[in-house]
């Protein structure tokens, strides 16, 4: 059949072809949600007089109506509806990772996967040659030499404008352009707001947990020396072993994302370690049946 029998077939020239199977129901971290009231848009919510209207609702003729599907939250007199899956809504102090979509006169515009684009002003950006000096005209001309379109930046949310605009700033040298690493995108709702957004995971890979669902993994600490802000400096390349660890982390994160489970250092490392102990190759983790078994095993360790 095959006319190419004398060809040296690469050992790794493999493929698995199979029929579609019913996947198990998307598992959700539901420990805190059971027994709470679900509503859909348009439903009327029962309230006591003197209630205060919160997010996800509107009042009409004195009645409180839900405007999104979700769970009804009652905190004192505040009644709101909290949807399970929603677009990233920034808060001041969040760390985000964004991709530059526009470079203009004195600002960068970034896509942070929120309802609006985020803006990083040149004046809010840390510069080479010292943190605090007046921005010159030359700086404006040289913006692209620092950060250009499609680059990834880590920054902090400084201010939220009334119209929903997001203003970013890079408060210290650990923020700035990202290079030499791997980006992983997940649902923003799965990243809990925690204190340490810049972490070194036990497998010695650095991670930045952007609240907008963007996670950056790198072998080197994302810290810029003052002289290194320019584009031409050599960042040490990731080692092959580092790539392996990053890849396993990336796959662990994607599995948690697929299963709608919260993503933080502990859950990631649980999947990571379980996959190592099971002797799985990085790529093998992603297979559907393997994925489900991994999560099953992690659950049985009692961490969920």
């Amino acid at each position: 059949m095959n006319e190419m029998v004398d060809v040296e077939v690469d050992d790794h020239c493999t493929v698995v072809v199979r029929a579609a199977t019913r996947s198990r129901t998307e598992d959700v971290d539901r420990s805190s949600e059971l027994g709470q009231m679900c509503v859909v848009a348009g439903d009327q919510i029962h309230v006591e007089p003197g209630f205060v209207r919160g997010r996800g609702t509107l009042t009409e003729s004195g009645l409180l109506i839900a405007t999104v599907g979700g769970v009804v939250d009652r905190v004192n007199k505040l009644v709101s509806v909290r949807p399970l899956v929603s677009r990233y809504t920034p808060e001041i102090g969040d760390v985000v990772i964004g991709r530059v979509v526009e470079v203009s006169q004195n600002r960068w515009k970034l896509d942070v996967d929120a309802r609006q684009e985020a803006v990083l002003m040149l004046s809010a950006m840390n510069l080479p040659g010292g943190a605090q000096r007046r921005r010159t005209y030359e700086d404006e001309l040289n913006m692209r030499s620092l950060i250009k379109e499609e680059d990834l930046i880590s920054a902090e949310v400084q201010e939220l404008k009334q119209d929903g605009g997001i203003a970013l700033h890079t408060r210290s040298m650990k923020y700035g352009r990202l290079s030499e690493g791997q980006l992983v995108r997940v649902k923003s709702a799965l990243i809990k707001r925690q204190k340490k957004r810049f972490q070194m995971l036990p497998c010695e890979i650095h991670a930045i947990f952007g609240n907008n669902g963007y996670i950056w993994l790198s072998e080197e600490e994302p810290r810029k020396e003052l002289e290194e802000q320019g584009r031409n400096t050599e960042t040490p390349k990731t080692s092959l072993d580092g790539r392996r660890r990053i890849s396993r982390l990336r796959n662990s994160i994607l599995i948690l994302n697929e299963m709608s489970m919260t993503i933080h250092a502990q859950t990631i490392m649980d999947v990571y370690i379980t996959s190592e102990q099971a002797g799985l190759r990085e790529f093998e983790m992603l297979r559907q049946n393997v994925r489900e078994q991994l999560i099953e095993r992690v659950r049985n360790r009692g961490n969920f």
Partner: peptide, 15 residues
């Protein structure tokens, strides 16, 4: 329509 959305909400919450 409403039932469809309700079912989805319940399913999402594992109810």
């Amino acid at each position: 329509v409403r039932n469809c959305l309700r079912q989805r909400e319940s399913k999402d919450r594992g109810l």
